[in-house]
């Protein structure tokens, strides 16, 4: 089957019911997409399929046929806001151990500029983080999506 992965058309010879997650990690060497639970609960395996966030552990390879898949490795090239998100997650403490971070960033990617805290929470509701308590993640996304507001934290200190 033909899949466009991070902007490149690829021909993949894979069983249709394999998890997209395994195809990305094992066949494509894209190990930035993580597995935390295998049941669509933690969101660490989030990728975009035709611009829509999905848990790649719950997507059969067949469903990627003819689609455009973007993983964390291709995020910066695919969408301008990705770079800002990546920068902000480092700057504002949104990434600690980092295992949830690719999924968080992919889930935040469809958000529009200047999204509200509630919209951010809704977009990230399917992603679990155990390190941060989420607040620094919200602040990171806010800082990336509202560059004018440059993070409450910088002001505070």
């Amino acid at each position: 089957m033909i899949v466009t992965i991070n902007g490149k058309r690829r021909r993949l010879d894979v069983a249709p019911m394999r998890r997209l997650l395994d195809v990305l990690r094992e066949d494509c060497g894209l190990t930035g997409t993580k597995e935390g639970c295998g049941e669509g609960e933690c969101g660490a395996c989030t990728v975009l399929m035709d611009g829509v966030a999905v848990d790649s552990c719950l997507v059969p390879a067949a469903h990627a046929e003819g689609r455009a898949v973007v993983t964390i490795e291709g995020a910066a090239a695919a969408k301008r806001s990705a770079r800002a998100l990546q920068h902000a997650f480092v700057e504002h403490g949104g990434a600690q151990c980092g295992i949830c971070t690719p999924g968080m960033i992919m889930a935040a990617l469809p958000l529009k500029a200047r999204s509200s805290r509630d919209q951010i929470k809704t977009a990230l509701a399917g992603n679990l983080c155990r390190c941060t308590g989420y607040i620094a993640i919200f602040q990171s996304v806010e800082a990336a999506l509202s560059p004018a507001r440059k993070g409450a934290r910088a002001r505070r200190r």
Binding site: G40, G43, D55, P110
Partner: peptide, 9 residues
């Protein structure tokens, strides 16, 4: 239901 990823699928 779920989170955004589950609602999308």
């Amino acid at each position: 239901i779920g989170g955004a990823q589950i609602q999308n699928r």
